[in-house]
Design a binder for these strands. Structure first.
Lengths: 334, 334
DNA sequence: GTTGGCACTCTTTTCCTTTAAGTGCTAAAA
DNA sequence: TTTTAGCACTTAAAGGAAAAGAGTGCCAAC
């Protein structure tokens, strides 16, 4: 026995569903009229007051209906809510996005964040930590008096910066350096790139200074964790943010890449869903649902949805799970 | 004679300044107390009502002070406001940003937009039209089973996409194609790239199919106008957008790249400032200040600031002009 | 255990009054 | 002719009481 009857659970689910949808406190009458037509409002009322007693519901004033507590949301997420699969069109949309984005060499992390925001209608955030990626190709692309340093990892995240070249450096030299870079660093995990510094420097025979610069730029990539945001102003349209102060609070969270980074930087199992409602670095009226994606033992980034506590968790969790599965497949086949 | 006395102009300037700062209707009393201590409020009052008669001021109700009309803003921008130069720190900030961004190969258009938004504290938009840019370097970068098509223009806008390669294609072939691409297209204006299609196809001797794909991807770049946004949620914090509907209106403008593109896609002289207040594709409560930058006869993009009608035009115009000058210098020396 | 009924509580709405701000006008002063 | 002081007038904003509305809690009956 869980201490909480099936009927109570059902009623709690109704309350949460209803409140998520309407943003209004839920009354016993509304429940009996819309969902539980076979019992009277008085019955529901007694159940509601029991649920309040147990800490699942909150009542601001005696005539104001009830809203779910954070505990209710947790229970809702764990047991009550009904997940829904993506529609075939949505699945197609996700795959198409990945395909076209990847061929246009856009960061896959950004693409995933965009897709999540698009499907959930909430602000999404993502943390791309390059440590676990593998260097696929690295080299210099000639560009007049400068060269473009390129690094392509197996996640297809592409980074680049211009390196000034000394006067009169022959073009073959660039190719030589590229070959060395590729043979020394190719296939390495990003967090192991630095270890090959000595080896690389030894292989460089001329233009050591330029090579030094190249290495420095390259090393800078390997540790650059990137926080990506998508759909930033979707949240502003939500009911809880009619209040300017709340918007401020939300924006200050979302705009601070450090704080978002901290929220995301954790865990790393399979598609792992984690929900933080208020507290611990999250403003009281915000909720963060994060998911860590990985495939073949490699992290594919941590993604999250940020929004008000009254969030459509069923939708968000469904989307996060589905997108994760699709991404895994895409990565494995790519 | 302009039909409008110096004193009227002065008073109008005070009203606009005051209203821009406070967002509150300006009263005759406030004017005499803060600025015109040598005349009485009654005098100012008669001037104000004359200015209202002339269409420069608007009064919502008889006891509510007055606010500037769009015509007043126009006059203010043309004659009344005092421009201010950037502080030395700001100038340094702009230059530094350009320097580091360019060496990190970020789009200069995005950098300019960021700088403008940062300095003005408004949402900024930019339209990068590649037509007038010149191809600096173009080529393929080997990347396993695919190749990365890279295009660097003199504005350092870098575009790239992955091209799948046929099985067993030798690496030298990539270099060959790159050389051809560079010699055929290098130095061309972007809008002239297409014209060399036949010449390029003729030069390709093998792997014609892949070459075709490369050309298609390349041509796609040449026409891709890009709308860039920066500081999107700065505007939401402004006084006029306490109202959710207004925010909606603003966001729907800002989020629609087409509409922004239309607003920006015009003119092309020197640093050309243009102001649109309401009307013609701009929501009634929005104002757009655009500036077209060019150096040495070449367009460097069109930039704009989007915000409420009550905008700090003096600041915005000053920033747009100053940033334009700095950008010109940077481009000429680069 | 469930239900109908009803009193009770608290918010929301409405309407009215008061207050405050600012103007418009006029007659006098400069 | 322009400026000023004074005062009546207008209107929004602020305050407050009363009425309405929504929901609950509880009790007695089923």
């Amino acid at each position: 026995m869980d201490g909480i009857s099936e009927r109570k659970k059902n009623i709690l689910r109704i309350v949460v569903d209803e409140y998520i949808q309407s943003a209004l406190p839920v009354s016993s009458k509304a429940i009996t009229q819309k969902h539980l037509k076979d019992v009277s409002s008085a019955t529901v009322r007694s159940e509601l007051s029991a649920l309040e007693e147990m800490g699942y519901l909150i009542q601001f004033h005696t005539s104001g209906g009830r809203i779910p507590s954070p505990e209710a949301y947790k229970l809702y997420i764990d047991e009550l809510m009904e997940r829904s699969a993506l529609t075939p069109e949505q699945v197609r949309y996700v795959k198409d996005t990945f395909d076209t984005r990847v061929s246009r060499a856009e960061s896959i992390v950004k693409s995933v964040a965009d897709v999540i925001s698009e499907l959930t209608d909430y602000t999404s955030v993502a943390l791309s930590d390059p440590s676990a990626e593998k260097v696929k190709n690295v080299g210099l692309f000639p560009c007049g008096k400068t060269a473009l340093l390129l690094l392509v990892t197996d996640l297809r995240i592409l980074k680049d910066s211009f390196i000034p070249l000394p006067e009169g450096m022959p073009e073959e030299e660039l190719a030589r350096i590229s070959t060395i870079l590729q043979s020394v660093f190719g296939g390495r995990r990003m967090d192991r790139v630095r270890e090959a510094e000595a080896e690389a420097m030894q292989a460089f025979t001329a233009y050591k200074e330029t090579c030094r610069e190249v290495l420095d730029a390259l090393f800078a990539y390997t540790s650059r964790k990137d926080v990506v945001l998508s759909g930033g102003n979707k949240s502003i349209r939500r009911a809880e943010y009619r209040d300017v102060e709340k918007v401020e609070e939300f924006l200050s969270l979302v705009e601070s890449k450090e704080r978002i980074g901290e929220l995301l930087a954790q865990e790393e199992s399979e598609i792992q869903i984690r929900v933080q409602i208020g507290g611990e670095g999250v403003p009281s009226d915000c909720s963060v649902v994060t998911a860590s994606y990985s495939a073949g033992g490699r992290q594919l980034g941590t993604y999250g949805v940020v929004g008000p506590v009254r969030m459509d968790y069923a939708k968000v969790v469904s989307v996060l799970e589905s997108v994760g599965e699709i991404l895994e497949k895409v990565i494995k086949n790519g």
